Simulated assay, not measured.
Amino acid sequence: MSVVKEFKEFVSKGNVVDLAVGVIIGAAFGKIITSLVDDIIMPPIGYMTGGVDFADKKVILVSADAVNKVEEVAIRYGNFINTLIQFFIVAICIFAVVKAINSLKRKEEELPAAPAAPSREEALLADIRDILKSQKS
Rank of each mutant, 00 (worst) to 15 (best):
K133H: 08
V16M: 15
E72C: 07
Q135Y: 02
G22M: 08
V21F: 15
F80L: 13
K133T: 11
F10S: 05
I25P: 00
A113T: 05
K99R: 14
S137D: 09
A126C: 01
A117Y: 03
D38P: 03
D130A: 15
R76K: 14
Q86Y: 01
K8W: 06
S119D: 15
V67D: 15
L132A: 12
G14W: 04
S2G: 05
R129G: 11
G14P: 04
D130C: 02
L36D: 04
A91P: 05
A96M: 10
P43T: 09
G51V: 14
K5H: 02
R129Y: 08
Q86N: 12
D39G: 10
I128N: 07
V4R: 11
Q135H: 04
I101Y: 09
K58H: 09
P43K: 06
I25F: 14
F95S: 05
I94F: 11
V67H: 08
V52W: 07
S63W: 10
L104H: 09
I60L: 03
V11W: 09
L125M: 12
F88C: 03
K58I: 07
V37D: 01
E108F: 10
F7P: 00
A116H: 00
I94Q: 10
V98Q: 10
R106E: 12
E121R: 14
D18Y: 14
R129H: 12
S35A: 15
T49W: 07
V16S: 11
V37Y: 00
I41Y: 04
P115S: 06
F95H: 09
K5T: 02
F54I: 08
